[in-house]
């Protein structure tokens, strides 16, 4: 396994060809040629447009109870059917999708940023800083989540509500809680990559050329350790959407009348044999969101990988 890596693409100090393109532009060119990634991006744009503009076009109230139409399958008046109170599922899906997607992305970003930061600092600095940060990681890994969640609601909910209003307050709380419970694997992954990469020749070369630690990390090590981070990011979006439903079940998340995708799936689970459509649509919505994000992630990692010839 010796001599395993070429110089990192961004650090090819030696080759100053006249017609060189910037690494970003090069990555974008590669990304565009990645068909699945483009397809993924397209799906995501459609989903985002649907949840942003959809409620304007499909103006059925999300909480209009109609017992005469409960648990109905697909029809013209209810394209995705209704739930057990006769509420229109399409309207609920469109409305809830905004929250689910926003929570998914925001929580993923927190997890990735915090995780990468902790992992990178721990990985590059040795000794006590590494030990302290890994202690923190271990601590977060071993905390029992439920009592801690209850403690957090109890400590912060009313303060946040008073500060930024109920909706934003709950959003911040949910995103922070999910993000805070998902950064640890990312940190451990990044640190492991760092431990290995910092001993590689190209980093040594950069060090020998007098690159500062920051430069070594930002230009050389980090770009090469992004593989697992991208995977973690794409998985975390799904995990956050699902986790949100668990939180609202614990009373920490959005009020129970806010139909996020995870919540819809949760409510539908006992009616799976009576009204399968109820679970089918939120389930597939989560699936397609996850699918598109993963394709984009794959495209990203291929585009950022200099050795991949496209």
């Amino acid at each position: 396994m010796a001599g395993s890596t070429l110089a990192s693409p961004t650090g090819s100090i030696g080759s100053r060809a006249a017609n060189r393109v910037s690494p970003g532009a090069e990555a974008w060119r590669r990304f565009r040629r990645h068909r699945l990634a483009l397809a993924g991006a397209l799906i995501l744009v459609v989903i985002v447009l649907a949840v942003v503009l959809g409620p304007l076009l499909w103006a059925v109230p999300i909480n209009e109870i109609d017992f005469s139409a409960k648990l109905q399958g697909m029809s013209w008046s209810h394209p995705l059917g209704t739930d057990d109170l006769g509420q229109d599922l399409l309207a609920r899906m469109l409305y809830g999708g905004r929250i689910s997607l926003a929570v998914g992305f925001a929580a993923m970003l927190i997890a990735i940023v915090v995780g990468t930061l902790v992992g990178a600092i721990a990985g590059i600095s040795r000794g006590s800083i590494d030990a302290a940060l890994m202690w923190l990681t271990d601590l977060f890994l071993s905390l029992p989540q439920l009592p801690l969640l209850l403690l957090i609601i109890y400590l912060f909910r009313d303060t946040l509500k008073a500060l930024v209003g109920p909706e934003v307050g709950v959003f911040i709380l949910v995103v922070a809680v999910i993000g805070c419970f998902r950064w640890m694997p990312v940190a451990r992954l990044v640190r492991a990559q760092f431990l290995s990469l910092r001993e590689k020749e190209f980093v040594e070369a950069a060090r020998a050329l007098g690159a500062t630690t920051t430069r070594q990390v930002v230009r050389h090590i980090l770009p090469n350790s992004l593989g697992p981070v991208i995977v973690a990011g794409t998985i975390d979006v799904a995990a956050a959407i699902i986790a949100e439903s668990t939180l609202s079940f614990l009373g920490l998340g959005f009020p129970p009348d806010v139909p996020t995708w995870g919540r819809l799936l949760y409510d539908a689970k006992d009616y799976l044999d009576i009204a399968p459509h109820w679970a089918l649509f939120p389930g597939s919505a989560i699936f397609f969101a996850v699918l598109s994000i993963n394709f984009i992630g794959d495209g990203l990692r291929d585009a950022l990988d200099p050795r991949k010839v496209m």
Binding site: S4, G227, A232, R307
Partner: peptide, 16 residues
């Protein structure tokens, strides 16, 4: 599976 795939992809095109 996704992690393994990504990790293997990271090394499979290396020179060694």
């Amino acid at each position: 599976t996704r992690y393994v795939r990504s990790a293997v992809l990271d090394v499979i095109r290396l020179d060694y």
